[in-house]
């Protein structure tokens, strides 16, 4: 815990110092909801986010328009990526790589391509692409490259990873709106949202917020019961099976 706190404290310190020097504008974001409940009709969700860049009179005049980048990260989790190899006539799982802590959901939204907002170097520093989020893994474990690329490809296809350079709409020069799209198989847990505002390629303001994805009442009760009261849950399923079978037997009795 302590080891994690130190960089956090440093970051906070840096945040405040930096804010005093160069960051004039203030960034505020608001969600349509900070809690997404997965009910029996859940097939995905859209979360609308509004953001505003507040300018005070003494703020420096900006020549260009404002830009915004938003990074949404789902709960971190471990994942095993396996590669199938031909063994005789069969295609079997061969080599595998375990990623201990990768976001289960990752979405990078911006108002125009990130390269146009900031230069390549800042883009890498900001990890403002799905691939960049895996750069750290590749640095420590060079052999993970293929597996990381495969994981990204698979999760992109599932709608879990993605970047959309047209997702943020500026309603006025300082007010913007965007939509976070969660697929039906969205992982449960705590989602972190990082929003940054730019002007003339420089970061001028940043903020962080979060939301939760949880099962709704009934689904939550079922899932908790299955996990914590396995025997009782099992007996309930069996009672249901026996009841169902008996009822069908009575309805369809032929003799």
């Amino acid at each position: 815990m302590k080891a994690q706190l130190t960089p956090l404290a440093l970051a906070l310190l840096f945040f405040f110092c930096h804010a005093q020097i160069a960051w004039a504008e203030k960034l505020t974001v608001a969600f349509s909801s900070d809690h997404i409940a997965i009910g029996s009709d859940f097939t995905g969700a859209e979360l609308t986010v509004f953001g505003g860049i507040e300018r005070a009179a003494e703020d420096p005049k900006r020549n260009g328009p404002y830009d915004a980048i938003m990074i949404v990260r789902g709960p971190q989790g471990s994942v095993a990526v396996r590669e199938k190899k031909p063994v005789g006539p069969f295609w079997l799982n061969g080599a595998q790589h375990r990623f201990q802590s990768v976001p289960s959901f990752l979405s990078i939204l911006s108002d125009r391509p990130v390269e146009e907002i900031i230069d390549q170097k800042s883009k890498a520093q900001l990890s403002a692409s799905v691939e960049a989020q895996f750069a750290a893994h590749e640095a420590t474990e060079p052999e993970s490259g293929n597996f990381a690329a495969a994981l990204i490809r698979i999760r992109r296809a599932q709608g879990l990873y993605g970047d959309d350079p047209d997702a943020i709409f500026f309603l006025s020069s300082t007010l913007f709106r965007t939509t976070i799209r969660l697929p039906g198989a969205a992982p449960l847990g705590h989602y972190e949202v990082e929003v940054k505002a730019f002007a003339e390629g420089e970061e001028i303001a940043a903020t962080k917020t979060d939301f939760w994805v949880n099962r709704s009442g009934f689904e939550h009760v079922l899932a908790t019961a299955a996990r914590q009261h396995g025997v009782a849950y099992g007996l309930a399923v069996i009672a249901m099976a026996l009841g169902f079978g008996s009822i069908a037997s009575m309805i369809f009795r032929r003799d």
Partner: peptide
């Protein structure tokens, strides 16, 4: 032969 030789499974 699979279309994608890679597969990903959550292990948590």
């Amino acid at each position: 032969p699979p279309r994608d030789t890679f597969s990903a499974t959550r292990t948590d």
